[in-house]
């Protein structure tokens, strides 16, 4: 199976490639539109800042390419946020695949709730979905983020930090995970292998 991992200016994606390698997928980091269009699956990872990532994607016409993808597509971390409508991070218009807004965590009590939300937290309120099939218990994932997607009708799992937020999104052929499945032990591995089986 050929998996295209979209190459852009957002962070270290080496561990996503290694995780896919462990699952036996033939993964390639690429920004070549042909390779992305012809892959069986597309993964859009990333860590970084929303507006500079959007500027970079637009300059290379990767924004339209992502909107036109027909095969199963998975956004991870910043990838999830960029697939939403708008991010409060530098007031950025994003790709609009998911009709969801991305907001900054505002702790009511900064001693109790630090931002970024860093560490292992649990998936809750799971919908019936191919991506979420047979996840091992307990369902902890590793998070590192300061912005979160609001709850919405395309939310298929939530996590609680300060309040409930969107952990996983799904609409048509697009899925997105806020946590880092590639760093989330057996639960993350199952999410990735489920995605590869879709």
């Amino acid at each position: 199976m050929k998996v295209a991992v979209i190459k852009y200016n957002a962070g270290n994606v080496q561990s996503v490639l290694y995780a896919l390698e462990r699952l036996g997928a033939d993964a390639e980091l690429t920004d070549d539109p042909e390779k992305i269009r012809s892959a069986d699956k597309v993964i859009f990872p990333g860590q970084g800042e929303a507006s500079s990532a959007m500027t970079y994607l637009k300059a290379r016409h990767l924004d339209q390419l992502i909107r036109d993808i027909k095969q199963p597509f998975l956004g991870v971390c910043l990838g999830l946020q960029l697939l939403c409508e708008h991010s409060e991070e530098n007031d950025t218009d994003c790709l609009g695949i998911f009709p969801v807004k991305v907001k900054r965590f505002i702790p009511e009590n900064s001693q109790e709730f630090k931002v970024p939300h860093i560490g292992w937290n649990e998936l809750e309120n799971l919908a019936e979905n191919a991506l979420l099939k047979d996840l091992p218990d307990p369902k902890f994932l590793y998070y590192v983020h300061s912005y979160y997607a609001e709850l919405s009708e395309v939310t298929i799992a939530t996590t609680h930090y300060i309040h409930d937020f969107t952990a996983i999104l799904h609409r048509d052929n697009y899925w997105a995970i806020q946590a880092h499945p590639e760093k989330s032990s057996t639960v993350g591995e199952k999410l990735l292998s489920n995605f590869l089986s879709i």
Partner: peptide, 8 residues
């Protein structure tokens, strides 16, 4: 290490 483990 990165190839072998799936935690940060």
């Amino acid at each position: 290490v990165a190839k072998a483990i799936n935690i940060p």
